[in-house]
Simulated assay, not measured.
Amino acid sequence: MRTRATVAAVSGALALSALAVPASHAADRGDAAQLTRSIASSLKESVSTAAPAPARRSLAAVKTANSAPKITKVVVNGGKPVVLDVKATKKVSLAITATDNSGVAGAAGFLWTGGATLEDVTNIAVPETDDLKCKAASATTTTCTQTVTVRSKDLANNEAKTWNAYVYALANDSDELEKEKAGTVKFQRASQLTVAATPKPVKKGKTLTVTGKLSRANWETGKNAGYAGQSVKLQFRKKSSSTYTTIKTVKGSSTGTLKTTTTKTTAEGYWRWSFAGTSNTPAVNAAGTLVKIKK
């Protein structure tokens, strides 16, 4: 996060020396360049000091022409968005699968955001602990997994968007590959949704007023703030049912507040608001509030 991290990793014969990145408030291209160089040099150093065969495949056994390793799969956070509230510290997994005809010595990377390339990077999330683990699926294919620690306090609100995964892979025959955009993951500001209904109980057939508020994490202030102008569904389920039905859709105010009325209330049950989410804010449902009918 904002380039304040070091990493040392060990996996069998593979041992990464510490990758040190100077702490700063926001990343720039110099930080990214240093980090990519550090990952490459550390993996190369680990190969040069790794255990001999049979821990590593003998290069003499490789009959085909040398070629760069291939990244076949990158999965960040198990394929799910990274959702952060105002005080969040989360462990995010980065799993890299690489293949090469000589076998894969290791693969490592980091998450970044900014412009179209690393030349315009604005923030970096890098591994901070000794946790790189590599597991060979075959003589040619290996998956290496790291954990990246992310903190909401190190993020700007406009960084709630799609982040990229930089990946570097090193083959046993010293061929190498790097990709600035080997994978992606969404960063999202955690959402909250409340509901209240009056009167409780309500007379059968009379008007019920339902209110609430949609808010989301403001990473820059460390507080939740109203999410303005969003469409939110008012839903109802009978007390005897487990399924909610949408009654109407209401647009929130400039502060995220919600208010509407219903007519001819006839059944006892639960009322709630439901928000479908946006690209930078996850979907959320309010806990249903029970409204009884007074005859």
Rank of each mutant, 00 (worst) to 15 (best):
L14K: 06
V202A: 09
T260A: 10
P282T: 12
T209M: 02
T194I: 03
D28S: 13
S138M: 03
S152D: 05
T207P: 06
A13Y: 12
G114N: 02
K153W: 09
K135D: 10
I39N: 04
A182T: 02
T257V: 12
A9D: 08
D131P: 03
S67W: 06
T289M: 03
V284K: 15
D120I: 00
A197Q: 04
K259G: 14
V202S: 07
V121S: 06
T72N: 10
K87T: 06
V76E: 04
Y166V: 02
A5V: 04
E180K: 07
A267N: 14
F110S: 00
P127I: 03
T243L: 03
T89K: 10
K87D: 09
F236S: 00
E176Y: 00
A283W: 05
S93K: 10
G109Q: 04
V291H: 07
L170D: 07
L290F: 02
T97L: 04
T249H: 05
T261C: 06
R57A: 05
K73D: 15
G79F: 10
A95M: 03
H25K: 13
V202T: 13
A26D: 12
G30A: 15
L193W: 07
K161N: 14
A136S: 13
T117Q: 04
F275E: 07
K259W: 00
S254W: 01
A65Y: 03
T162H: 03
V185S: 02
V104T: 12
A27C: 08
E159G: 09
